[in-house]
């Protein structure tokens, strides 16, 4: 079953589009990696999906609806973990979770149960009444992660999740992602940590200059680049060289 479907999406910040004719989909229970060089359009793609940027053409369907058709259904179908943690300096950890639960219509019982498990998993039980100004970068990241997993939506959008997390944090995140996937959630993850992406992603989308350069399983990608036995790093570097060659020939 398709959770997220992008069809010919073109868009960006100004009239000059950053992403062009982007089409891909994500199925239930699938972890998809969004990979590309700096400036390839990963963040722009994500901003279109979460609805902070609107597409110039094409449409984005989440659980069958676009943002315009049913804003509440669209928005409650995903949760988002941004690359840099965005916290309310005036809310404690407990209040961040409470606010998220209220916004997504969870009842207090559900909040209590899920919160307990997440706090334990990410070792943050003792920080419930702390303000973000006392948190390290990794802890701030964990607050975002816990808020996202608290909602239990059908799609997770995770932007560069591993930077700043300690190894235990990374493991907890991967465990959580695996568990949610098994329960049927779809995950779109953008990252530069290619070895992790290769190991955990079911499919990979390689973005290049705002277009999908290749997508599919590792097997598909190796075929597309004509590089059998290549790792994702090799493919990534091959794409870089391709770009350099193109730029020099211009």
């Amino acid at each position: 079953m398709t959770v997220l479907q992008l069809t010919n999406v073109t868009g960006g910040y100004t009239r000059k589009p950053v992403i062009q004719n982007l089409s891909f989909d994500i199925q239930k229970g699938e972890l998809v990696g969004l990979i590309g060089l700096n400036g390839a359009g990963k963040s722009t793609t994500i901003k279109h999906i979460i609805g902070t940027l609107l597409a110039q053409s094409g449409d984005i369907r989440l659980n069958g609806v676009t943002l315009q058709e049913d804003m509440n259904k669209y928005r409650s179908s995903f949760s988002y973990i941004p690359e840099t943690p965005v916290l309310y300096e005036e809310l404690t950890l407990r209040e961040h979770l409470e606010l998220t639960a209220m916004a997504y219509g969870l009842d207090e019982q559900t909040l209590a149960t899920r919160q307990q498990a997440l706090l334990k998993e990410f070792r943050m039980e003792k920080r419930l009444n702390w303000f973000p100004s006392h948190f390290s970068k990794g802890m701030r990241q964990k607050v975002m992660i816990m808020s996202a997993f608290l909602v239990n939506p059908s799609l997770y959008i995770i932007d560069e999740p591993f930077v700043g997390l300690d190894p235990l944090g990374i493991q907890s995140l991967l465990d959580q992602m695996h568990a949610r996937k098994k329960e049927g959630a779809a995950i779109l993850m953008s990252t530069h940590i290619l070895s992790t992406a290769e190991k955990y992603c079911d499919r990979i989308i390689l973005l290049h200059e705002g277009r999908v350069r290749a997508q599919g399983t590792m097997k598909d990608l190796r075929a597309a680049f004509n590089m059998p036995n290549a790792t994702l790093d090799d493919l990534y570097i091959a794409m870089t060289k391709e770009q350099d060659a193109n730029e020099q020939s211009k």
Binding site: M71, V86, G105
Partner: peptide
């Protein structure tokens, strides 16, 4: 001025 998570809330 900047992005805050409440802009994504389904409310």
């Amino acid at each position: 001025h900047s992005f805050t998570m409440d802009q994504l809330f389904p409310v």
